[in-house]
Design a protein around this nucleic acid. Sequence first.
DNA 1: ATGCTCATGAGAACCATTCTCGCACAGCGT
DNA 2: ACGCTGTGCGAGAATGGTTCTCATGAGCAT
Lengths: 144, 144
Amino acid sequence: MSGADTGRAPAPEVTGRRTTRQRSALLALLDELDGFRSAQDLHALLRERGDPVGLATVYRALQAMVDDGQLDVLRSADGEAGYRRCSPSHHHHLVCRSCGRTVEVADPPVERWAARVGAEHGFADVQHQVEVFGTCAACVAARS
Amino acid sequence: MSGADTGRAPAPEVTGRRTTRQRSALLALLDELDGFRSAQDLHALLRERGDPVGLATVYRALQAMVDDGQLDVLRSADGEAGYRRCSPSHHHHLVCRSCGRTVEVADPPVERWAARVGAEHGFADVQHQVEVFGTCAACVAARS
DNA sequence: ATGCTCATGAGAACCATTCTCGCACAGCGT
DNA sequence: ACGCTGTGCGAGAATGGTTCTCATGAGCAT
Ligand SMILES: [Zn+2]
Ligand SMILES: [Zn+2]
Ligand SMILES: [Zn+2]
Ligand SMILES: [Zn+2]
């Protein structure tokens, strides 16, 4: 979709990981998908598409990609983890709770807000976790 | 901490739930604790304190209290759910990642920010999830 | 006090995730 | 091109938090 990288890897990605059929297939699949998908979903999708990958491998590869900062993780209310290809810089997500479509948002104000709240209470090393959920325009329209 | 509701329950809590020894003990325990505790922790604490409650009952009671808005839930990175007694109005938490101490924060700005972000992208029924983590002054001091 | 329900609890079931361990293969030096 | 070597793979077992089952026990209205 964003073009420019279907051939040789343009970014050497010096992650020290080996390039295998399984990891390539997983990464390619994630590039085509929009919202957050669970490891189980991804495993099933790979099988459907004729690129069978062991479930344990899917988990290992996803975790490696998260460690390398190539993926975002988001835990749903029922405890299942969702993964999504994303930009490496700090940002948050606006997720459609109906179709799963995701928009990345990066606004300085909320960053400053979090830092200020922590500082006001004497907290150090302040980090934050922010996610916004809603129903996207398309899904609202589809609901008649 | 925000005063005004430490005495008798001001709201009759018309939840339609029965009052049992187990639920009373659990609620009393939660009132004494500060940070977020897992269901397993709470179960162990109740046993230590000589108020044995079945694990399944702890889970059921916690879920019921969450549904009734008497508790806050927070999922840690490893998928375990933490529960904490909290004020019924909408707010967020500032949690010490070292000692677990929690401060409730309620700031209109971040509420407006979330609503605006959703609206700008055409999302309806916008909700949000915001948590701030850090190391509290006491823990920073204790770290020498 | 009586009865109708809902709550309880011990254990099994569930299910996402992680671990085990023998085998395959990507990367690399020759 | 060839072979080494350590990394990655996969099937199944193990783990561990959470939920379900169902027979028994206890609120609460009458
Ligand atoms: Zn949608
Ligand atoms: Zn941020
Ligand atoms: Zn602390
Ligand atoms: Zn809020």
